[in-house]
Design a protein around this nucleic acid. Sequence first.
RNA 1: GCCCGGAUGGCGAAACUGGUAGACGCAAGGGACUUAAAAUCCCUCACCCUCACGGGUAUCCCGGUUCGAUUCCGGGUCCGGGCACCA
Length: 907
Amino acid sequence: MTSERYNARESEPRWQRQWDDKAIFASKNDDVRPKYYVLEMFPYPSGRIHIGHVRNYTLGDVLARFMRAKGFNVLHPMGWDAFGLPAENAAIKNHTAPAKWTYANIDHMRSQLKSLGYAIDWTREFATCKPDYYRWEQLMFTRLLKKGMAYRKNAVVNWDPIDQTVLANEQVVDGRGWRSGAIVEKREIPQWFLKITDYAQELLDGLDTLPGWPDAVKTMQRNWLGRSEGLEIQFAVAGESEPLGVFTTRPDTLMGVTFLSIAAEHPLALQAAQGSEKLAAFIAELRHGGVSEAELETQDKRGMDTGLRAIHPVSGEPIPVWVANFVLMGYGTGAVMAVPAHDQRDWEFAQKYSLPIKMVIVDPSVIDALNEIEHDLSQGVGIDPMRAALRGRDSNAQDISAPLRVVEAFERRILEDAAWTPRGVLVNSGEYDGMDFSQALDALATRFERDGSGSRRVNWRLRDWGVSRQRYWGCPIPVIYCPKCEAVPVPEDQLPVVLPEDVAFSGVQSPIKADPEWRKTTCPQCGGPAERETDTFDTFMESSWYYARYTSPGANAQVDERANYWLPVDQYVGGIEHAIMHLLYFRFYHKLLRDAGMVHSDEPAQNLLCQGMVIAETFYRDNADGSKDWINPAAVEIQRDDKARVIGATLKADGQSVQIGGTEKMSKSKNNGIDPQTMVNKYGADTVRLFSMFAAPPEQSLEWSEAGVEGMARFLKRLWREVATHAANPDHPVTDPSALDAGQKTLRRQLHETIQKVSDDFGRRHAFNTAIAALMEFLNALGKFSDQGEQGRAVRHEALEAMVLLLNPVVPHISHALWQVLGHPQTVLEDQPWPQADSAALLRDSVTLAVQINGKLRATIELAANASKEEAEALARAQPQVLHFLQDMTIRKVIVVPGKIVNIVAG
RNA sequence: GCCCGGAUGGCGAAACUGGUAGACGCAAGGGACUUAAAAUCCCUCACCCUCACGGGUAUCCCGGUUCGAUUCCGGGUCCGGGCACCA
């Protein structure tokens, strides 16, 4: 039996059934071992597992099995992020109810995940589209509503004027609705918001408590939160009773304000438009196009004078108020003070509309130039005041041309090239001349706080979380609208508000909006006729607390006490595309759970591993109409020249050439997706798992290569053969380290180096690719080790057992089989202790040093591990190569780094 | 447009704290075994010059710090992720 080749297709399902039937990976709370909660971002049930899932869940699985072997009580659950837009799209396309489609996908994908052999506790599985799950987030929402943490206000959405529906940003393509082709408009509708901004400071500070999160993610979150300190300044508006407030982080530039910009949706703009057809038309035009920030920020900067005049709070001068398409109503006050000399966007706007540019900040070098000619700052800076000040002087007394050139050049730069945005020294600012940024900030803040026209303020870029979606396939928002009592939360004893699943879904109108019966209800407060909210929650709502629900299966509450055993998550694994939004909502919701008394920790996850995307080559043929036919890589053959360079590709089916389109993220549109199921069927789950861990480090993008997969299959076959050949002779003595010869000692040292490296790579570095490379390297060494003597066999046996244990997290099926071949009846391989490196076996007698001359490698030397610096230098200088190179040179310096290099500096 | 990453042989990558650039795998070339093929095994493999010994060059580009830079600093190019209604 042991000499047979390993048949993954027959063997793997057997192991999977065994793990399943015995519930080997079901986790318990009452366990003496320390807990370890590893969680991968749960999948959206889109239909089939894709390679990105395989990568994600294999990463988590390797950690789960590794940590169990290290002696932890591991929780590794799985569930389904089941609400979302794709189900509605599929419903339209396939004329099926979103629920039916979703449940069928879940069933299929569950079996696919099982076929990959993941060590998952399936007893905790749930789907977020079930009332058992979403009822708890409805309850939480009603409580937040009562606490004032949830509120309703108008917000802008993409509106399709033909389909009469709200569109997701994804459904807006080049400013048009994806189905109707109509030019999308912005429309304001009332929506529910959660006050995430109340937690902005805590969300920012919390990042400093997360050393286990990637710096890139923390930096992105910090920038997203966007804390800035500055002043809120009130500009009185001529003829208006209410002042216009603006927030600025650059109060030092206040005297350079030459106009104000307000958003098109700003009340003042709308009011001004009533008196001006031209302005009304312009504002109407700005309604065209979508609402995404990327779209707004890349469009041409456009504006129009409202005719309103604000009063500068210091100079008292009138300042024109413009409507500008780049000012966002949702950020700050929806109005900004424009300083074209010192803000690039304002500068461009001023250039375009010939608005004045007034320099009020200069580089210290300009001040130096002025000091040179004893110019009094209070007389002003800028060319005209300069000349005026100099006019009366005796031109022979001082040569003013050089400093004047400095000032002129600086001013010309601002007027002609670009805004000058660094902080500097104030000029042209009256009493504030000569101040630096913080002096000006203090002076202005004091002044405004005294006269009531402004105050210091912390501003956040973060906006409150809009949770309303005008969609059917989501969790109903538990609110009732009563004509008398307005918005009333659904009472707790009436929850959950259940989403009907058996519906006809045509695509445009949500079935619960279309059905007057579902809507109809009575007001919980006054008992009168009322209507239910028909919007549903953002699906980020479900994915913000699922990690906590896994800890408390079946709890008659959102979570119960068990959450405090398991939480926080020890290791979270998911795609970098979630770096900001999901991971911020996830952190926010944890604080909501904490403040509701349900969990005791401040952050949901201690460590975060962000995996890269999965990419593959693309191939295409040009169509006559200029479009492209994308061809799946599996259908293509590659041509190479004699240096193995790719020179072309042909379609296998017809042998004709196809174009190579570059390596891109796997997608439907480029038809470069590889179906993992096909790969599993062909090569076995272990081979697929091994490749996805070996081909790239986890954070980098992973390029799929079927040839690479075959290489993994070869490695596993060689491993199998090595074990089977050895086990054919059941006699295996125990290693006696004192009895080993040089070859046996070397192999054993290599083994223990490998154990050390793999343990470190799995546990500390998460460098699964180099761990596997080390195991391959060791198998190569083992293959060359032919010693069949007593201790030779002993060392080989020790090596093979260690290899199987080390590989088990990545390739559990073959490892379980080989463990039996090696003579162990146990099936729970994870409960075998993780191999320990024997420090005595790691000792080396000698080391190799590189010898450099002027930083270039010229020789290597071998010397005793405990040799002194002097011995190393002497040996290096005696090398023939070194002597040859140093013939005509004098040695200036010798640098010896023990164990590394000897560098001889000579000339 | 803004924020965050990345770039190393023909390809995926390695080099962990500034110390021998290219481990491991793929592809390719040569050989062994075989009637043959598959499978397997062995050898070669950054580029250029050289019969060879050996030498020169090389980690996206330009510049800097250092005895020494893939690694640190400044400036750029290209590619990717995110930008609040894709998940």
